[in-house]
C-alpha cells in the first residue's frame, strides 16, 4: 500500500472519531468543533519541539576531526614514502 494511503487512512479514522464526538455530543459541541484546530496546533508544537530537542542534543564530535587530521598525516607520510605525489593540500 502506498504510504500516502496509510496517512489518509489515519486521517479518515481521526475524522470519524471527531464526527462521532460531534454527533454524540459527549463533549460540548463548541469544544468539539475546535478539536481539529487543537490537533493541528499540537502537531506543529510536536514538530518544533522535536527540532528543538534535536538541535539541543545534536551529537557533535570535535575530537574526531583531530583524529582524522592525525590519520591524514599518517596516510600522507606513507604515500609519500611509496613515491606517490601527495602535495597540494
Amino acid at each position: 500500500m502506498k504510504h500516502i494511503l496509510k496517512i489518509l487512512g489515519l486521517l479518515v479514522a481521526v475524522s470519524a472519531v471527531w464526527i462521532g464526538l460531534l454527533e454524540a455530543s459527549i463533549v460540548p459541541s463548541s469544544h468539539a468543533w475546535l478539536l481539529p484546530v487543537y490537533l493541528i496546533v499540537s502537531l506543529g508544537c510536536y514538530g518544533f519541539l522535536m527540532v528543538g530537542v534535536g538541535l539541543m542534543f545534536f551529537p557533535t564530535c570535535p575530537q574526531e576531526a583531530q583524529l582524522l587530521h592525525k590519520d591524514i598525516a599518517e596516510a600522507k607520510e606513507f604515500l609519500k614514502k611509496k613515491g606517490l605525489d601527495v602535495g597540494l593540500d
Binding site: P59, C61, E64
Partner: peptide
C-alpha cells in the same frame, strides 16, 4: 547513522 549516541557530526 550520525544521529545517535557515539555518532555525530563535526563542522
Amino acid at each position: 547513522t550520525r544521529y545517535v549516541k557515539s555518532g555525530g557530526v563535526h563542522g
